[in-house]
C-alpha cells in the first residue's frame, strides 16, 4: 500500500524557564493514502498537539524536539515556514471543534472561499466561485449561489461545520486532520457530519486523522486507531480489533468504563486520573492507575511493540 504519512518518533515539548515538559512523547504511526485513523484519549493526552505538530504548527513555547513527519516524500518537520504554508494550504487541511477558528465572522462565505482558492490556484474569480459552489454541493449545502453571499452567523452550528469542511476541500487535500469536529454538536448532527467525512474520504480518496475522545465515533468512522495517554501512544491497531479486544490496560479500562460495558448498575472505573505533564510517573506513565503494574513498569518506559493479538501496545505485562 501507498504510504501517505509516516510519523516517526515525534516528540513535542513545551519550554519552561529552565526545563521543558514533554507533551508528545516518541509518537510513531503511519497512514496510507485514503486511510482513516482515529486518535483517541482523554483531554490533555496530547492529541491536539500531535495534530498541530504534523502540520508544523505548534506554537511557542512548544517546539518539535525530535522526530520526523514524512509526507509526500518530504520531512515536514524540517520545512521552512514558506514551504510549510504551501503544504498546509494544498495537501493537508485541518478542521477544528469550533468552526469559527476557520471562518471569519465579518466576511461572506463566498469571499472566504474564493480568496482561499485564489491563494492556491491560478484561476479566475469566476472559476474560483465555481469551485467553491462545487465544494458546497459536496457537503450537501443547498442553493450554493445564495449561500456564498451569506455570513457565518446566518448558519446553524452544523451547517457552519459543513462549510468548514467545504473550505478544507477547496484545495483537494490528500489528508484532513479533524480535531474534535463534532464535539460541540448534537448527536444527530454529529452523525450527519461523520457520514459526510466518511463519504468524502471514500469518494475523494482522502486520508483522515480523526481526533476525538469518543470511542464510539472512532469505531464507526476509522479503520485504524491510536490510543494516547499522557503524551504517548499506548495502543495502535485496526479499529475493530482494538475496540473488540483491547490489550493495553488503559484501553481496556477506557472501554470497560463505558456504560454499555457495565454488567450491573455500577460502572467500571479506572482509579485516579491522568497525570499532568509535570507529574508523569517514572517508567510507564500509567503505572499509578494500573492493576498489572510491577517491577519494570516503575523503572522503564515500555515501547510500542507488536503483541500476540496483532495490535501494537506499550506495556511490559503484555506478551
Amino acid at each position: 500500500m501507498d504510504t501517505l504519512l509516516d510519523v516517526r518518533n515525534l516528540t513535542v515539548k513545551f519550554a519552561l524557564r529552565d526545563s521543558a515538559l514533554t507533551a508528545v512523547n516518541n509518537v510513531s504511526f503511519t497512514l496510507n493514502r485514503g486511510e482513516r485513523l482515529g486518535l483517541v484519549g482523554e483531554s490533555g493526552a496530547g492529541k491536539s498537539v500531535t495534530g498541530f505538530s504534523i502540520i508544523n504548527l505548534v506554537s511557542k513555547p512548544g517546539f518539535i524536539a525530535d522526530g520526523s513527519v514524512w509526507f509526500d516524500g518530504r520531512d515536514l518537520a524540517t520545512l521552512s515556514q514558506e514551504e510549510m504554508r504551501k503544504v498546509r494550504g494544498n495537501r493537508i487541511s485541518m478542521i477544528f471543534q469550533d468552526p469559527m477558528m476557520t471562518l471569519n465572522p465579518v466576511l461572506t462565505i463566498g469571499t472566504q472561499m474564493v480568496e482561499t482558492v485564489l491563494a492556491h490556484r491560478n484561476v479566475s474569480k469566476a472559476e474560483a466561485e465555481a469551485i467553491a459552489m462545487d465544494k458546497l454541493r459536496k457537503v450537501y449545502i443547498n442553493s450554493p449561489e445564495k449561500r456564498l453571499k451569506q455570513y457565518p452567523h446566518e448558519f446553524s452550528g452544523g451547517m457552519r461545520q459543513r462549510i468548514v469542511i467545504a473550505i478544507a476541500l477547496l484545495t483537494d487535500p490528500a489528508l484532513i486532520i479533524a480535531d474534535e469536529p463534532t464535539t460541540a454538536l448534537d448527536v444527530t448532527i454529529q452523525a450527519e457530519i461523520m457520514d459526510l467525512l466518511l463519504e468524502l474520504c471514500r469518494t475523494e480518496d482522502m486520508g483522515l486523522i480523526l481526533i476525538t475522545h469518543d470511542l464510539g465515533v472512532v469505531s464507526q468512522v476509522t479503520q485504524k486507531v491510536a490510543v494516547m495517554y499522557a503524551g504517548s501512544i499506548v495502543e495502535l491497531g485496526e479499529t475493530e480489533q482494538v475496540c473488540s479486544n483491547p490489550q493495553h490496560p488503559y484501553t481496556r479500562g477506557l472501554i470497560a468504563a463505558l456504560p454499555e460495558a457495565a454488567t450491573g448498575s455500577r460502572l467500571n472505573q479506572i482509579p485516579g486520573s491522568m497525570p499532568n505533564l509535570a507529574e508523569i510517573p517514572v517508567g510507564c506513565a500509567f503505572n499509578n492507575r494500573c492493576e498489572l503494574g510491577k517491577g519494570a513498569c516503575f523503572t522503564t518506559v515500555p515501547q510500542l511493540e507488536r503483541k500476540q493479538s496483532g495490535v501494537f501496545a506499550a506495556c511490559h505485562e503484555l506478551e
Binding site: S156, G158, M159, V187, T188, Q190, A191, E192, M194, D195, L198, D214, L215, G216, V217, S219, Q220, V221, C243, S244, I255, L258, E260
Partner: peptide
C-alpha cells in the same frame, strides 16, 4: 427514533435515521 439511532456506539454499524433540515 432518530435521536437514538444517532448514538455512536462501539461495534454498532453506522446506520442512522437522517432528518431533513434544522431545528
Amino acid at each position: 427514533k432518530a435521536l437514538l439511532s444517532a448514538i455512536p456506539r462501539i461495534g454498532k454499524g453506522f446506520q442512522h435515521i437522517k432528518l431533513s433540515g434544522d431545528v
